[in-house]
Amino acid sequence: MQIHFEQAGASFEGRVAVEPLTLSLTERRIGIIGLNGSGKTTFARMINGLVKPTQGRVTVDGFDSASDGETVRAKVGFIFQNPQNQIILPILHEDIALGLKNRRLPRHAVDAAVDGILRRFGIERLSGRRVHELSGGELQLAALASVLVTEPEVVILDEPTNQLDLRNRALVEKTVHGLDEMAIVISHDLDLIRDFDRVLLFHEGRLAADDAPSQVIARYRELAA
C-alpha cells in the first residue's frame, strides 16, 4: 500500500488549508499531530478524496483520489471525529451491514461478516442495540467496526480518543495498536502515537515536521508554547 502526495494542496475560498506538499506514506503506523485548524483533518480527507486537491494530485496504489474516489475509498476507511454522525442506521448490526450492501453478497455472508467484525472488537452483545443508546466508547468501537467490515487496507482515524473517559481511551488505544491494517491516526493524545513508525506535524497549513515520534513531539511542544 502506497499513498502518494504529489505537490498536492487544498484551499477553500481563497484560504489555504494545506500548502502543496510531496510525500509518500507506507509505514504501518502513522500519526498526524498539530494545533486546531493546522490542516490535519483536511490533509487526511485528501487521502480518500473527500477533499479534492485544488492543485497537484493524491494517489493510493496508483489510483487518483479525485477522479477515482470510489476505488480509493474502498481501500481507505475513514473514522470521523464524531462517531455519532458516522453511524447512520438505528440498529447497530443494520448499520454495519449497510457498508456491505453494494457487494451484493448473500444474506448469510453479510450476517457472518457483521458477526465476525463485532466479535473482533468484543462488542457482539451490542449487535441488536439502538445506536443512540450506546456510550462514547461503544460508539467509537462501533464506528471502527462499521468501517473495517468492508476490509479496507488502510484506516484513517480522526481523533479516536477524543472525549473518551480514561477506561474507554485505554480500550480504543489498545484496539488501534492491535489493528492488522495500516493506520493513520490524527490525535491530540500524544501517548497514543508515541511508539508509531512515523509522525507528521502540521502547523498553519504546512508540514512542519516529519520524523520519528520523539523528535516530532518535541518540535510540537516548541510550536505550541
Binding site: F12, R45, G49, Q86, I88
Partner: peptide, 27 residues
C-alpha cells in the same frame, strides 16, 4: 450542521454506491 459529517461518512463508506456525490464543488 451535522449534515456535512454524516454525508462525508456515507460517501467514505461507499454506501450509496456509484457516482460519488459532488460535494467538494459545493464547499
Amino acid at each position: 450542521k451535522n449534515a456535512d459529517d454524516i454525508a462525508a461518512a456515507i460517501d467514505a463508506r461507499g454506501i450509496r454506491g456509484h457516482k460519488p456525490a459532488r460535494r467538494s464543488k459545493e464547499r
